[in-house]
Design a protein around this nucleic acid. Structure first.
Lengths: 199, 199
DNA sequence: GTCTATACTCTGATAGAC
DNA sequence: GTCTATCAGAGTATAGAC
């Protein structure tokens, strides 16, 4: 799929429009009409590039997982423990800020029981977390950071960073108009995790 | 609506079934057929009790907000600061454990931009958070707990507790079969917030 | 109050001209 | 490759018998 320049470009236009609509309305809530309108194409033309609505959705989910795992992969076992973890948190929060649509697409998928990503989560994601949990455990054993259940520590990073993307509407409503959620979140999470992790 | 015993009971049966389906599939993903099947009623009979699919959804959302705000309301300005906050966290986690469907219904609504609850969030929820933020600020000024942005502290409690309900599938997949997420979460969050808040 | 039958709309997907 | 027209199925809601 997607050979020529034009095809490449059109595929990307469709996927970007689909990301808009799927992330805002979920799979069932999204319609091909909406996606076509956002993409500036006709509905049959969408289906010339992708076999079905589900095929568009799957294409988005597939390219999503790697984006999702990359920052955790980058956490270096040989780096300075606190700096590595704080770097991971900062990168994860940047993703929430710069790619909120991807975050919501992922949240929608998990909320509904991960019908399409279950396998990937049980294999790739679990394997990566297990591997990094061992790194965290080693840092704890060496007295570099506070002793905590490593996997739950990772969960807490996910929960706190993704919250600012997935619950953006609520965050902004509660903070009021004169606040920048992500700037404040960065400072807050810096303090929170530094205080939590420093022995 | 819902006068007699039978009517009362049927309304509740419908709402409980609808909560099952809406929380698992979102508003558009849910169908009256599914709700009717779970409720053990015919589709037209559903519509005898509620004017429309949206009316069922709205009824659920309306009774949801109070359940959602109650634990935060219960945080007592005159109580012992750390005990009050830890009590709030424990109660919020219990709700995630005992009412995961409600948590996911709420998450779905916010994810989609809170089309039905926006007003309530901007008024009731914001007012309550503002009020409790003042209480937290006073505790900080008195040196009882660590000085932190109070509203973000509340966000962090929401994020960490709701994560275990909303991302339950992912949590269980990563932890593996021999773990009880909520028991572990309770211990983890106890340590996390005690460490964070104790001066 | 509850059911069967059905009207009507929306939406995913296809046919076929250009 | 892209469009107009259209089909087929799903799904909300209503009519009307009982």
């Amino acid at each position: 799929m997607a050979r020529t320049r034009i095809q490449q470009k059109n595929s990307e236009t469709i996927l970007d429009a689909a990301l808009d609509v799927f992330s805002a309305s979920g799979f069932r809530g999204a319609t091909l009409d909406q996606i076509a309108e956002v993409a500036g194409m006709s509905k049959p033309n969408l289906l010339y590039y992708f076999a079905s609505k589900e095929a568009i959705h799957l294409a988005l989910l597939n390219q999503l997982l790697d984006t999702w795992l990359d920052p955790l992969r980058a956490m270096d076992p040989n780096g300075e423990p606190l700096a590595e973890i704080m770097g991971y948190i900062r990168k994860k929060l940047e993703i929430s800020r710069d790619y909120p649509r991807e975050s919501r697409l992922f949240a929608n998928e998990i909320l509904q029981g991960a019908p399409h990503m279950r396998v990937a989560i049980e294999s790739d994601l679990k394997a990566l977390v297990d591997k990094k949990a061992i790194v965290l455990q080693a840092w704890m054993d060496a007295g570099k950071i506070t002793r905590l259940p490593p996997v739950h520590l990772i969960f807490s990073i996910w929960a706190l960073t993704q919250h600012y993307a997935d619950f953006d509407v609520q965050v902004r409503a509660v903070l009021g108009p004169d606040h920048d959620p992500f700037t404040e979140a960065e400072a807050f999470l810096e303090v929170l995790f530094r205080r939590l992790l420093l022995p």
